[in-house]
Amino acid sequence: MYKNDRLNLAIVDDHPMILEGLKSLLQEDPKFHIFSFTKGAAILDFIQENKVDVVLLDIVLSDGSGLDFCRAIKQKLPKTIVIAISNQAERSIIFRFLENGGNGYILKNADAQEIVKCIDNAINGDLALSKEVQEIMLRPSSQAFEIPRLTKREQQILESIAYGHTSAEIAEKLFISVITVETHRRNLLQKFKSKNMIELVKIAAENKLI
């Protein structure tokens, strides 16, 4: 696919240790010229003026969802390879990322060798999936679920929870009190029969409520 030209590879992750770890791992490969960003908006600005061949994109970023940033990158630069590198192991999130144009999905617990192999696979035109992601995708989806009816406010709060916002951030954004947000959170857990917020978001995503 590429011959002598170095590839511009951008890493987007708001965890400094992970960012530095990936940079030091990939800098050893002479075919890459590495750029790093802590916000999704920054990579969108960067690709306006610069050619980027590969983007390693975290799913949960401080300024939005990697799912949305993946779609936005692909709309601007359809040929750019976009690979998720994430702790999010939910089957529905993996599928949504790929539906949004993603070229692969790597869990952060993958070892260095596997990460490099996945990136090479994507460059060669294959789908880049770490071993654990392949196993998750092959599992049968959860059984049919009776979708609860949500109020407009509950829907707003559910979407904010999915983006990883805290109760305080949600309260500020929606101009309501933290206590009100916490009450809605408890109601959502009951409606979805969920043990915790991670399970709540997973069920909501699988049923396309977010």
Rank of each mutant, 00 (worst) to 15 (best):
K131P: 03
D13V: 09
L127Q: 12
Q27M: 15
T180S: 13
A10Y: 10
I34F: 05
E135I: 14
E90G: 00
F35E: 14
H33W: 04
A10C: 15
V201Y: 04
T180R: 06
L209R: 05
A128E: 01
A205R: 09
A205I: 04
E135K: 14
P30V: 11
R139Q: 15
V116P: 02
F95C: 09
G104V: 01
D111S: 04
M197T: 12
E206L: 01
C70S: 04
D126T: 03
A112Q: 13
I123R: 10
E169N: 09
D58S: 05
P78H: 07
A171G: 12
D13G: 06
E172C: 00
A10L: 13
I18A: 15
A162D: 03
N87M: 12
F97V: 02
Q113F: 09
K173A: 14
V55Y: 07
S24P: 08
D14E: 04
E154C: 06
G101R: 00
V12S: 00
E90V: 01
F97T: 07
V178E: 10
E28S: 13
K39P: 06
P16F: 06
D58A: 00
S141D: 10
E49P: 02
C118S: 12
G66D: 03
T183P: 02
G21H: 11
S160E: 09
E182F: 06
S167L: 05
L174M: 03
G21Y: 11
Q190W: 01
A162R: 06
C118T: 10
Q155R: 11
M137N: 02
S130V: 03
A204S: 07
E182T: 00
G21S: 15
L174Q: 00
L19C: 12
E159C: 04
N187F: 07
V178N: 05
E199S: 00
K193G: 04
Y163F: 10
D120C: 07
D126G: 10
D5S: 13
S86T: 15
E199L: 07
M1W: 11
R185D: 05
L61C: 02
L189G: 07
L174S: 05
L57H: 03
K76Y: 02
Y163D: 11
Y2M: 07
D63G: 14
L56R: 01
L189H: 08
M197P: 01
P16V: 11
E99T: 01
T80K: 04
I34Y: 08
S167N: 13
N187C: 11
E135H: 12
D5A: 12
A41V: 13
D63V: 13
F97E: 03
D120L: 05
L19W: 02
F35S: 15
F37P: 09
D5P: 10
K51R: 14
K173F: 05
S177P: 08
L189A: 03
E114G: 11
Q27R: 15
R186W: 04
T180D: 05
L129M: 08
Q143L: 14
S36L: 05
L67P: 06
